[in-house]
Design a protein around this nucleic acid. Structure first.
Lengths: 170, 170
DNA sequence: ACGAGTGGGTTGCAGTTTGCAACCTTCGGT
DNA sequence: ACCGAAGGTTGCAAACTGCAACCCACTCGT
């Protein structure tokens, strides 16, 4: 009855989920992007159980998202730093934060990201077409190639999109 | 020993995590954005246990991300449709997919998003400053107000950023 | 009339994960 | 000698996950 391995899927979302999809992991990553590096700081900020934190940090290191660096000897003390892979996660968290601000709070969002260079609030994370530059939403896009398992469901929608966009069918 | 309620945090990422942070939920949302709507389709595409799927869909409906709609009577049949809140999740998944493509695959990503209007691949999800428009990364931004619990750790980093950006300290 | 198939589930049970609390280790300070 | 800090590990009970079997209301083919 072992847990299914999501990284078996030939899908980037599934692979990413295997790395960051466990409870607390996103929040640890958020704290790391805020600037935290030490075990105790993650622990006191999140109120997470120490064994869980230990486990999650080990997973993040194993997945190459963070590194464990010795910052002092006698006694040995370690801190956790983001790798390039970890820092590259920023747009995902920015998008998630924006979504949470908009849809999970009634009033003002509790805090916001400030661009140092501007000193002003306001970070947006927008999906856009790298070809034409236009902003994209879920309706203006389809997946390709279509996974076999869902072809029969999505095909008609794709056909409709093709007619609308007046492009030759491949 | 009840599970900690992440939506207690005064943080958008934590609130969002309470909605989408459980195993499978992101993949269900991905499938929904691909165009799937029915219980059996999610089930066969993901290979998820039926009780778990049932539970996750119920949670998504409870959180206002999907709605359960009767599409046929005798026998009653239901489908699951994304709400505006659910469709608004697209930039997060686009960002996550982009991250997975870049960092979780060795070679070519298995599939990509195609803009109907262009017929061309390439979706990027980029965080940018809504004030000056420049692209942002983790280093060019800080959180404000700083959570009390982490102030002592992050303060020095923020001071450094302020000096670099040569802005008056608020 | 009967059996098989479809769609949308629920229930039972065993194995896995989570979280609290207590404990460990190595140091530096008093 | 004792305390506190930092970075953990261990033990145990409650909660969650996943497989398989089952349920129900139809429809379709023979």
């Amino acid at each position: 009855m072992t847990r299914m391995d999501l990284s078996q899927f030939d899908c980037s979302v599934a692979r990413a989920t295997e790395v960051i999809g466990e409870r607390w992991t996103l929040l640890i990553l958020r704290d790391a992007l805020y600037g935290l590096t030490r075990f105790v700081d993650f622990q006191t900020d999140l109120g997470i159980a120490r064994n869980i934190l230990s486990n999650r940090l080990r997973q993040l290191v194993a997945h190459g998202v963070m590194t464990r660096q010795l910052y002092q000897e006698q006694p040995d003390r370690y801190e956790y730093l983001l790798t390039d892979k970890g820092r590259a996660f920023f747009p995902v968290l920015a998008a998630l934060m924006h979504w949470g601000d908009t849809w999970a709070f009634d009033g003002e969002p509790p805090r916001s990201l400030v661009h140092h260079a501007c000193g002003r609030e306001g970070v947006q994370s927008v999906a856009s077409c790298s070809n034409c530059g236009r902003e994209l939403d879920a309706e203006s896009v389809h997946i390709d190639p279509l996974p076999e398992t869902i072809r029969h469901r999505v095909d008609e929608a794709v056909e409709r999109w093709r007619r609308l966009s007046a492009l030759p069918t491949k």
